[in-house]
């Protein structure tokens, strides 16, 4: 135990953390030089407490400064460092190296289904376009009572609690096989954010959103493969949310 070690005045807790060598194979692409993306190996000395993001930082800061990837808060809130880690969409800042099989190389590549710009950076605009299309904002024609706030019971709030957790990292949408092949499909993230407002008792625009998602490329394209639920770093039950929107559209009301 670290506390015992400290009491005995032995090595500091930091030194006790196991270290290991891990091979990272990163899919690099520099549009000014490369015609095709290429896989590049990096052998790194890492600690048991390190995440994939720490390994990428180590590459960028100590080995090759040209490695490009997005990250901001580095604590699973901003949603900017979603990438494919060993073939699965994960946040680099929430994936511990020790949870992966470090006896084998770790493969890192950019999200699939969105245009690759450089290294691990993809063009997120198509993703945000479909997000915008479902009109993810409170629509109301009335002023709140007493001019203060719009009240809601805790049950009404709980109805859409799960879908409020979305951080728009695109891990779900870019794991969806329908999104990969059908350039027009809204994708799970847009439907999740529509769900968040469709089932909000304060919102009056449900019908508009349901009409949008009742479109040819709307919810009916979903084939319930559960890739999105598996990919979501926030644990949102994405496929269930999509199914609830489908049922709401069939009923004609939330």
């Amino acid at each position: 135990m670290a506390s015992d070690v400290l009491e005995k005045g032995g090595p500091r807790a930091h030194d006790v953390v196991p270290t290991f060598t891990v091979t990272m194979i990163v899919r690099r692409f520099d549009p000014e030089v490369d015609n095709e993306p290429r896989w590049v190996d990096y052998d790194l000395q890492m600690h048991g407490t390190d995440r994939v993001l720490d390994a990428l930082h180590k590459i960028k800061w100590e080995i090759d400064g040209s490695l490009a990837f997005r990250r901001s808060c580095a604590h699973g809130v901003c949603g900017s460092d979603a990438m494919r880690i060993n073939g699965r969409n994960r946040l680099a800042c929430k994936t511990l190296l020790k949870d992966l099989d470090i006896s084998k190389p770790i493969y890192i590549e950019a999200l699939k289904g969105l245009p690759l710009e450089k290294d691990l950076i993809v063009d997120m605009e198509p993703f945000f376009d479909s997000f915008r299309e479902v009109q993810p904002f409170l629509m109301s024609s009335s002023k709140p009572k007493d001019g203060k706030e719009r009240l809601q019971s805790s049950e009404e709030r709980a109805r859409f609690d799960d879908t409020t957790k979305c951080i728009l990292c695109a891990a779900c949408t870019s794991s969806c096989p329908v999104f990969w092949t059908d350039g027009q499909y809204f994708g799970p993230a847009a439907i999740v954010n529509a769900h968040r407002f469709i089932f909000d008792s304060r919102d009056e625009g449900s019908q508009v959103r349901m009409d949008i998602l009742n479109d040819r490329e709307g919810v009916w394209r979903c084939r319930t493969t559960f890739n999105c639920t598996d990919a979501c770093p926030r644990g949102i039950q994405v496929t269930q949310a999509i199914a609830e929107v489908k049922q709401a559209i069939m009923r004609g009301k939330p």
């Binding site: 904002f137 629509m139 203060k148 949008i212 479109d215 040819r216």
Partner: peptide, 22 residues
């Protein structure tokens, strides 16, 4: 407490006929 009447919301016109996908 500003209420915007459906901001920038061009309601998509449903093409008539049967919704085959549904």
């Amino acid at each position: 407490t500003v209420s915007i009447e459906t901001p920038r919301a061009p309601r998509t016109v449903r093409r008539g006929g049967i919704n085959w996908e549904k």
